[in-house]
């Protein structure tokens, strides 16, 4: 059994999501090869070679893979993937963008967002916004899979010594080009990897009030998230959205402030270890999943919380 893992990276380093995917690959069992496709991605390939459990790193360094456009990268992955029994990627926006394309090129189905490996061909994955867990079996010869990163621990980033081999094939579909990127800058930890997440919802009333959350988050070393309502109302940018259609988080502590707890939001955070809800509506559905609930006005509670921790 051989497994190809498409690495998530920024050319200089490997992103945490890849480490969780390696753990899922280990659960399947077999030789693990990591593919680093990018432009000027030598450093990322070196980092991938050090990941514990990786036996080989393939590096495809080409201008066509520069911004990891799905049209180009999928051609590469599909070409290399023919030699493997499994092709895995984290279920990040990148993985979600590229992998179904790979699956279609290989004429196989894809199993999205797996949360556990039951056996070589059987996996569990959430459907209906996480309200149902399905156990699914793939009959395809090559199994193309994306991995829900919060469901698997991160593999150790050090300790491995895989061989790095370069891949010469260059694929440029010529149908797409990169124009620009606007990446939100933040000193706080990345939302999907943070140990503590503090999230605000419509109850925050406006974007300025999020400074109350930032103050608490900074004291806790936490990332800040938001509900769809807060994003749609323009309080915060959309990359902070936690939920079925945003990011899936599973931190040790999730503090939901002014969030009612709609199904779609719960889908993104209900696997958190401890959930705290602060809401003035005692009937809010969020209290049904919260370990600790505080029925109070968030504008009184947040400053108190900041000084108490």
């Amino acid at each position: 059994m051989s497994i190809l893992v498409l690495a998530e990276h920024d050319n200089a380093s490997i992103k945490g999501a890849t480490l969780n995917t390696i753990t899922a690959a280990k659960a399947i069992g077999g030789d693990i090869t990591v593919l680093v496709a990018g432009e000027g991605c030598g450093a990322a390939a070196e980092a991938a070679a050090k990941i514990d459990g990786v036996s080989k790193v393939l590096v495809a360094d080409d201008a066509a893979y520069g911004h990891q456009l799905a049209e180009n990268v999928s051609l590469l992955v599909a070409e290399l993937g023919k030699e493997f029994a499994y092709v895995l990627a984290p279920a990040t926006t990148n993985g979600k963008n590229t992998m179904p394309r790979v699956a279609a090129l290989l004429d196989v189905g894809q199993v999205s967002d797996i949360i556990s490996v039951e056996s070589g061909d059987t996996f569990k994955r959430p459907i209906y916004a996480g309200n149902v867990i399905a156990t699914v079996q793939s009959s395809d010869a090559i199994k193309v899979i994306t991995v829900r990163t919060t469901a698997f621990d991160a593999a150790a980033a050090e300790g491995g010594s895989a061989a790095v081999e370069s891949v010469s094939s260059s694929h440029n579909a010529g149908t797409s080009s990169f124009v620009k990127e606007e990446i939100a800058k933040s000193d706080r930890p990345e939302l999907t990897a943070a140990g503590i997440v503090v999230s605000g919802g419509r109850g925050m009333q406006n974007g300025d009030n999020f400074s109350l959350l930032y103050a608490v988050a900074d004291k806790l070393g936490a990332a800040v998230g938001a509900s769809r309502a807060a994003v749609d109302a323009g309080f915060v940018p959309n990359d902070m959205q936690v939920g079925q259609t945003g990011k899936i988080v599973a931190p040790d502590l999730y503090i939901a402030v002014g969030i009612s707890g709609a199904i779609q939001h719960l889908a993104g955070m209900k696997d958190s270890k401890v959930i705290v809800a602060i809401n003035k509506d005692e009937d809010a559905p969020i209290f049904q999943v919260a370990d600790y609930g505080l029925v109070a006005d968030l504008f009184e509670v947040l400053p108190q919380l900041e000084s108490a921790i």
Binding site: H67, N94, S176, F178, D239, K247
Partner: peptide, 10 residues
């Protein structure tokens, strides 16, 4: 809409 923010492609 990508993980870190926004990306524009043509």
């Amino acid at each position: 809409e990508v993980d870190g923010g926004l990306q524009t492609v043509k």
